[in-house]
Amino acid sequence: MTHLASALVTLLFGATVIAVRLKAADRPTSLRKIIIPPIGMSTGFAMFLVPATHIPWLWALGAFVAGAVFFSYPLIRTSTFERRGEHVYLTRSKAFIVIIIALLAIRLLLHDLVEQAVTIPQTGALFFLLAFGMILPWRLAMARQYRSLTKKSEEAGN
């Protein structure tokens, strides 16, 4: 039953991410809106204060790098901005939905494999690092793209 509950929560989370992302395309964005998610998520590192979540440094590095290299790249490629009047908007991408669904499927498959080798708290720690490794480069790339776009319009206005 816990496996089914975990899968359902993951699917619910994925559906929420898709809905939020699609809705966000209807509102202007800002640098603050781009950088707040990784800052908020960084509080999750407090989990490592609990000994049950401790994992070897090499595992932690591997999970973070896997997120940064393999999972953030498709998100970076499908996140683009456009200027509409004086505001900047994140453009909708149909590929984003497909990528999120594929990432969820990969996560569900990997979760079962990882959970067989380590404890549930350690599995949570590994997947947190994987997710943080994914979101940090993605949001940094979005921030660079946003700053580049706003800088160009500031220069054009002067």
Rank of each mutant, 00 (worst) to 15 (best):
A66H: 06
P38F: 12
V114H: 01
Y89K: 07
Q122I: 12
L31I: 05
L103M: 10
I99D: 03
R147T: 03
R139Q: 12
L136R: 06
G85P: 12
G157V: 04
R147M: 02
L129C: 07
R144N: 08
G133W: 02
G133V: 09
Q116F: 03
L108M: 10
L58F: 02
A156H: 06
V69A: 10
P137Q: 03
I120S: 15
L75P: 01
L90I: 13
E154H: 09
T91C: 10
R83T: 08
P121C: 12
S42P: 09
P137T: 07
I120N: 07
E82C: 05
A52R: 07
F127V: 08
A46K: 11
E82R: 11
T53D: 01
I97K: 03
H87P: 04
D112P: 04
Y89D: 12
I97W: 00
L104W: 04
R77V: 00
S148V: 01
I135N: 06
A131C: 13
Q145R: 12
R77D: 00
P121D: 11
R107L: 12
V50W: 08
G40M: 15
T123R: 10
R27C: 00
L129D: 04
I35Y: 05
A102M: 13
T53W: 00
R92G: 09
M47Q: 11
L109K: 09
V20W: 10
T80Q: 14
P121V: 11
K151H: 11
I39Y: 01
R139I: 10
P137M: 08
T53F: 02
R21P: 00
F71T: 00
R83H: 10
L136V: 15
E154V: 07
F96W: 14
